[in-house]
Design a protein around this nucleic acid. Structure first.
Lengths: 201, 201
DNA sequence: CGCGTTAGTGGACAGCGGTCCGCTTGTTAA
DNA sequence: TTAACAAGCGGACCGCTGTCCACTAACGCG
């Protein structure tokens, strides 16, 4: 929660928690830092930490959420300013902006993915509002493609699901570290597999 | 491990563990059953359980691994018997057989995905041999497509990664439960997004 | 300033995944 | 049959996520 009406002392503690968490994440890597470590380092009790954040995923979101929302706004702003640009360019730019966010935040986003909600949400790959927002943008753009292209039998929702599946944080990390692709390469491959076929006739 | 040289008493206990685990999974759902519950129900200690299986993922694999391997063999057998069939048919049949395995085993496969290896393997979406095997089949078939089609600039590895990303067990469950697609619909959508564009010219 | 109310605290607790070591039991050779 | 060896055992242990309640401290009002 970026906005909470907390008592002054509680707000101070929340700030200390965030600072210490960010420092620990930077030092050890987000996946190696436990909520206990964060509580200890911040000098607060377990209960206090969990009063601020339901789980590690929420804490992580508090660290990068603003940046992700800004990026989403950037996408929407771009799309709003370029309504007459070719749909292909708009789709590619939206995805490019999202990939930039992934490049910056993928370890923390992976921690959010792995540490949010209960059992039920663990089984929902696109649970987060943020991902749903990006997914929606893609669906809308694909719907536009579908309307403009008569012979193209396009499935916007499933296609967006497929794009979002390969853009999951852990998959992105895999592509970067295991496959050794650069961000530019991933971008080109993504466009090549998903976008270009839509415009080849 | 499907083959272990165990003492008779240990082998008996391993069988009991498997039987009780299968019963608990059937009753409560695999994601809701802990290793402690399994040990209790089987009447063995923690250490004994973990001597048989390093983690829940391994135990789950022991339950369905044979079936998955048989399915893989079925794919290879089909491909071996149909080398002169159109590549599109072979690709589609291989994926269809894999989808059938997913339909049967997705909750347990999702548990394997979520509960295997250490931190490092958690960040590798295609860690399991089984998934690597299917991935390889797809890459090989896509390589054939690439060779036979001159004007098609195909990226077999990334394309296979994308296919495997949408075929992850948790994503499959999401498509079935959240999107409400039938297995037939998922199959059609998968072919539509990934296969048909390869053969449209 | 004092008091009442309630937001906030921390650490004990439960249950989890996983480890490990003193003890037990199965197996084999003499 | 017996003894030696080592595979195998179980439960105490560690650290984790997350919960909860008796206690504390902040805040606002008179």
């Amino acid at each position: 929660m970026l906005e909470k009406n907390l008592r002054k002392d509680a707000e101070k503690r929340r700030q200390v928690i965030l600072e210490k968490a960010a420092a620990l994440f930077a030092e050890y890597g987000v996946e190696h830092v436990s909520m206990r470590q964060i509580a200890r380092e911040a000098g607060v009790g377990q209960g206090t930490l969990y009063r601020s954040y339901n789980n590690k995923g929420e804490l992580c979101w508090d660290l990068i959420g603003e940046s992700c929302i800004q990026n989403y706004d950037r996408i929407q702003s771009f799309l709003g300013d370029h309504t007459s640009s070719p749909i292909k360019d708009r789709l590619e730019t939206a995805l490019l902006y999202h990939l930039e966010s992934l490049e910056t935040h993928s370890p923390v986003l992976a921690a959010i993915q792995a540490n949010s909600g209960g059992d039920e949400q663990q089984n929902v790959p696109f649970y987060s509002e943020h991902y749903e927002s990006i997914h929606s943008v893609i669906v809308q753009l694909l719907n536009e493609v579908a309307k403009k292209t008569e012979n193209l039998d396009l499935d916007p929702v499933f296609t967006a699901d497929a794009i979002m599946a390969i853009l999951r944080p852990d998959v992105y990390i895999f592509q970067r570290q295991h496959r050794g692709y650069s961000p530019e390469e991933i971008k080109n491959k993504l466009f090549h597999v998903f976008i270009e076929p839509l415009f080849h006739k």
